[in-house]
Design a protein around this nucleic acid. Structure first.
Lengths: 187, 187
DNA sequence: ACCTGAACACCGTTCAAGT
DNA sequence: ACCTGAACACCGTTCAAGT
């Protein structure tokens, strides 16, 4: 098991990155929150890129576990799809934060390569899960399901971003409702 | 008429902000591009917040003019709606940049107040235009049209973000196509 | 093994000083 | 009117030094 300090850094960095992005990650603030000095972070994570990649990896691993659990608990694929936006909703509830990888998608061109890899992995996890749920629910072929999965992922990300800029979770719900009404999301 | 230097700063700052965000705006790089020193920027824009607000204001003014022109040239409201995503597409074509205000929506909580105001204005311009086009095209009532307009704006923003993170304009087109197929966008 | 202070080159910003 | 150099407190990072 990793040290408590390393875990504490990871956890604090994740919350900070969901609020301020990779560029907004601040070693001195992070260190203060954990109770060490800024230079000490480099003992656990050699560079900011290493920290960013570790945070993003942990993030998509957690989401992947959550998606698997959802799939296990809700045998109905359509019910799964209906619950999907709730994952993005929770970030907003939790301090008006957004999905780590939505933030990093905006920052993408400026990210170090190891961080980019993890951001892609997050998108892949989501799209693969959605495509599988869609094909189970509606029996479409794989290619159509994949295009639709990408569309859902992009649209829900956009809804989260807009809702955050208004600090209005109700707007997120309303946007998801519109996606359902128009047929993008199953309803 | 404003000085050439001020205009040059504004133009360079806009391109930089569409690529790196408000936080990524760099006075020394910006100054080098314009041919002055970093400290000189503060003569034209007292603070980074002033520069950011001026850039965002100019941005939505330009987009608003473009939307009006589109409306004037295409009397068919449905044709207008079909052309709407092209505005977001162009940013991607232009150096894999994104809509200034999508970036700033991610950074929203960290933006100075004057910049926030302009980011909101951009969203309002888009949503108002979309709502008008929707009601003209389909004759729905105002409230439904507004909800739908928000949904289109959010979804197209999300598509732009995802396409940028893959540096793939074709993905943007494919996402817009999916939005059309599912009925979110008129087709 | 884990942490730190001091230093480095970078940021936005200020301001007195130049022309 | 417009620009600048030098200084300030901040960044991530390095590294020799501590325990």
């Amino acid at each position: 098991m990793s040290s408590n300090v390393k875990e504490a850094i990871l956890s604090a960095a994740r919350k900070a990155a969901q609020a301020h992005g990779y560029g907004g990650l601040n070693f001195r603030e992070l260190a203060a929150e954990v109770g060490i000095k800024a230079a000490s972070i480099h003992y656990h994570f050699p560079s900011k890129a290493d920290l960013g990649a570790a945070v993003a990896r942990r993030y998509w691993e957690d989401i992947a576990a959550e998606l698997e659990a959802m799939q296990a608990e809700l045998p109905d694929a359509t019910a799964c799809l209906q619950h999907y936006p709730a994952i993005f909703r929770r970030s907003l509830e939790n301090g008006n934060r957004i999905c780590l990888c939505s933030f990093m998608a905006a920052e993408y061109d400026d990210l170090p390569e190891p961080v980019k890899v993890e951001v892609q992995a997050f998108a892949d996890v989501n799209v693969t899960w959605l495509a599988k749920a869609l094909s189970t629910a509606e029996g479409g072929d794989a290619s159509t399901g994949s295009a639709r999965a990408l569309a859902i992922f992009a649209a829900v990300s956009g809804a989260q971003l807009l809702a955050r800029s208004r600090a209005d979770v109700g707007l997120f719900d309303s946007l998801i409702g519109s996606y359902r009404d128009t047929g993008l999301l199953p309803g």
